[in-house]
Amino acid sequence: MKIACVQLGVEGGAVADNVESAIERVREAAADGADLVVLPELFDVGYFAFEAYARAAESLAGDRLSRFAAAAADGDVNVLAGTVVEDLGASAADGIDVPAGAGLANAAVLFDREGERRLVYRKHHLFGYGSEETDRMVPGERVPVIDLEGVRLGVTTCYDLRFPEQFREMVEAGVECVLVPSAWPYPRVEHWRTLGRARAIENLAYVAAVNGSGAFDGDALCGRTAVYDPWGTTLASAGEEPATVTAEVDPERVASVREEFPALRDRR
């Protein structure tokens, strides 16, 4: 499976412009032969545009995500629409299963080649350090894993990288590749590089860590999107500017590495 990780340049609060840019990048990646396109965390509103969260929030069946479903179908490509601000009440009204209570969630949505919603992941670990996410969002409860294009696939989001037990839960469900849409800021560049690689090494799985690019009133995303193989080897990476990073994910490679180095069988 060929993954295209879109390191999008995100403008805080400029939802319409960010969405147009993301749709165009999805089309470009599809035309270039990608099987799966992955966008960053809160690519539509911008992570640090906290005051715009409520204004940007929609149901997962709303008009904005419907455009990405249509882009997936039109381009014959799977699309992880990064994460968006979900209005849980609106989603519930549209018949979508949501966590208990109302409010907003940081939700990743994966559409298949037919534009069908295949996976919804709501960020579990909300970031509170110099952030308002914990004040404005409701944490998710589930860690879904699906089969897509012959690959057992899971999703986490940004700060989740610091919590290895969540990745172990996915490994128990047979995950072979984890997508990590993120809005990782400066100055913690070495944390970003180390944690993504560590999650790949310890779980003997691919990790596609997809970051954004852009500045938000004193905060800036560090970019450096990267895809790591089950040994933790960097298959492809970017700098801090907008870019699309592509890599091949092979489930047979996961099986062979786990057979050669059976660390997961040695857990106690």
Rank of each mutant, 00 (worst) to 15 (best):
H191D: 03
G95I: 07
I146T: 04
T156N: 07
Y186H: 11
G154E: 08
D250H: 09
C177V: 03
G232Q: 12
Y47M: 08
E51K: 15
E176T: 05
S21D: 10
A92P: 11
N203G: 15
A215F: 03
V85H: 05
R253A: 06
I3D: 02
A14P: 04
A263W: 08
P185T: 05
I96A: 05
D74F: 13
G103N: 00
G9F: 12
C177M: 13
G218E: 10
V207I: 15
I201R: 02
A52D: 12
G223H: 00
D44Q: 14
F127A: 00
G115L: 05
L221E: 03
V6T: 14
L8T: 12
V249K: 02
V15I: 12
A57L: 13
P139Y: 09
D135Q: 10
E240G: 12
R113E: 14
R265F: 11
L235A: 09
V6R: 01
A29I: 10
L36R: 01
G239K: 09
R199V: 07
V120M: 07
V245R: 01
P181D: 09
A105F: 05
G214R: 00
G212K: 06
G13N: 09
R265I: 09
C177T: 11
L195P: 03
A173C: 01
V26E: 03
S91W: 10
P242C: 01
T233R: 13
S256L: 13
V178C: 11
A255D: 13
D87G: 01
G232N: 09
R142N: 05
L153N: 03
V120P: 06
A14K: 03
R199D: 11
G33V: 04
R25A: 06
A243T: 14
V245S: 00
R118M: 07
H191W: 12
A93C: 07
A22W: 05
L80S: 03
L80G: 02
P181W: 08
P99F: 11
V79N: 00
V143R: 10
R162K: 05
M170N: 01
A100L: 13
A93R: 11
M170V: 10
V210H: 04
A247D: 11
L235Y: 05
V175I: 06
K123A: 05
R199H: 09
S66C: 06
A198Y: 06
L39F: 03
A200S: 15
V19P: 01
A56C: 02
V79R: 04
E20F: 00
G214F: 03
G218M: 08
E132M: 13
G223A: 10
